[in-house]
Design a binder for these strands. Structure first.
Lengths: 335, 335
DNA sequence: GTGCATGATTGAATCGTTTTAATTCAGTGA
DNA sequence: TCACTGAATTAAAACGATTCAATCATGCAC
């Protein structure tokens, strides 16, 4: 039924070795032969069997990527960047979505290991490092994405969230705000904690500036609305004059709740800044200032590191990117 | 370096055949032997080589899914549903993103064909049906997602967009609206054209109701804002009293532009309904009425059809789901 | 004690490609 | 004319799991 190199070889009256050479090193084959074999391939509709190829090669030409949440545009962008770098090498990305669930994460790692992927890029959950260790010990290179590990035993690509938080809040202070609120949670998520820490540092630098923490259950639009409704209900004097939200989804929720029925003006009464700079941010009712992370670059670099590490020198490298402030109307000058 | 069944067999002093049986039909092996082999697997850290397995089996245990846009929550949900059904069979989904680009689509099809996937699910671009035909002729089952083909040569799963458009506009009419505007484009996209057609039919049923078409360049938030700004600028008497947007992203943009600086009240002056019922819809400033498509179910069913078709009887089946009206505040009673 | 059925295990063949060492052949220089 | 070089091609040996026909025990009935 299926056409194999053997059939092609017969049709072109050459050996299978020559067919393989045409496929992989055409320059080693006489032009006339190449033409003949190519014609036979076309004629018979031959399609290479990747499984056989891999079996022989020992490793596949795919790279596994496990992310915490495919719905989050940040990770979609990371995947895109990874795909770009992989494509340069003729490789492909297998995308797995752990949904912040350890079992799913483990299932994908098992799958990828059975597939003998060239490497695994992962935004790991907190609790399964031994599994990664084992994976690595068995010969699969692993690169951590947006997460570092204290003992430096893995290569990693991350963004400095402390700096990001600092940038956001310093910007608020520089534009004249004094009573800052940090909206975000749960604090167990490293990114949230780091961004809050950055905010704290910026506040500590300036006399007369206060920081209030408004915790949320999650990083969703709804959680943001809930938090902001609490703020709306306060007396005007008890409200902050600026809000730093731990991500853009929260910030969108905050924005909606504040402005509801012509309530509190943004940025007139309260300035607002988010984090991640998702596409929606610039399209909000009041375009949102935010902290941009080079998501695609993170993915790109992660693949790069993986290839380098797999390609011989057992280097463990840690790359940390700096986030960037994006100023839009939501942090314009106050009323 | 890597551990093979051979090594496991040696360690457990059994034959490779027995190891394979333990892996695949443990009930055919004596319990004591199972235990011994399992221990050896654990001990040596054996991991099955999927390539070898596939090679022997002839087909892989993966299913290829090519979507038009991973950033669109609709497709993410389709993928999720497909994943669920695949998991029931111990299979996995390979997700490819064509980004509405023919070259990328083709590249994914080539890749999937080389991988000998069990089947391909695809939301195809308009212009490459011959490629799919060829793929199918070579033995790979193909199921179309959210797109049908006139000659019924492929199985397909879709949603009736004409009905969806009809439902949306009939709802607007039933709640007392008379001057309806359809915002959406480009008309070359089948979904847009069908939804508009549905709107037309609903309007045709009721005397005294008018339909105006406001074309847009794309289906994005920004395009929606632009369209709505045009409407805002009109004299109040020339404005529609209801807007049906071709998808939720457009609707969000429309909503933002209408309400800007306490401009036009929604639903007081203008009612608004979208399409897709994305998560954001319920979290909008004014929660958005919408038409829900069973995205996950579409994915689930597509895999189901594929398995059925691949599993013997060469049935070509076409499944069409009915969309569902979701009423929220944005189409509440007028002022 | 022989014959048989049943269950457990084995060994070899197989999937389709890549790779390496071996072979062929034409051309070159001595 | 012979030996030799280099390019082009070939044949066979992998890669690692699965499968199937064949073998080996074991227990049971007669």
């Amino acid at each position: 039924m299926t056409v194999s190199v053997r059939d092609v070889a017969a049709a072109a009256s050459v050996s299978v070795g020559t067919v393989s050479n045409v496929l992989n090193r055409p320059d080693k084959v006489a032009p006339a032969t190449v033409a003949r074999v190519t014609a036979a391939i076309e004629e018979l509709g031959f399609v290479r069997n990747d499984a056989a190829r891999q079996l022989r090669a020992g490793r596949s030409r795919s790279i596994g990527l496990v992310v915490l949440d495919v719905r989050n545009p940040f990770f979609t962008d990371v995947a895109r960047g990874a795909e770009d770098r992989a494509a340069e090498e003729g490789m492909t990305i297998l995308l797995g979505n752990s949904d912040e669930n350890t079992d799913r994460e483990r299932a994908y790692l098992d799958l990828f290991e059975e597939q003998r992927v060239a490497g695994v890029l992962i935004s790991p959950l907190a609790d399964d490092l031994p599994r990664l260790q084992r994976l690595r010990d068995r010969g699969t290179t692993v690169v951590l994405v947006d997460r570092e590990v204290p003992d430096r035993s893995f290569s990693s690509v991350a963004v400095d969230d402390v700096v990001g938080g600092y940038l956001a809040v310093r910007h608020l202070i520089e534009t004249g705000r004094r009573r800052i609120a940090f909206v975000g949670g749960p604090a167990s998520i490293r990114q949230v904690a780091d961004r809050c820490e950055g905010a704290r540092r910026a506040v500590a630098e300036s006399a007369g500036v206060t920081l209030e923490i408004v915790p949320t259950e999650s990083l969703s639009v709804l959680a943001g609305r809930a938090a902001a409704e609490g703020i709306r209900e306060r007396a005007a004097s008890a409200r902050p004059d600026a809000i730093f939200a731990a991500n853009d989804l929260l910030a969108m929720g905050v924005l909606q709740a504040l402005m509801m029925q012509g309530g509190i003006d943004v940025p007139g009464e309260i300035a607002l800044i988010g984090y991640d700079d998702i596409d929606f941010a610039s399209a909000a009712v009041v375009p949102l200032s935010s902290i941009r992370q080079p998501a695609a670059l993170i993915g790109y670099t992660a693949v790069d590191l993986m290839l380098k590490e797999a390609g011989g020198e057992a280097v463990q490298e840690r790359v940390v990117f700096q986030p960037e402030l994006v100023v839009r109307e939501s942090t314009g000058v106050g009323a």
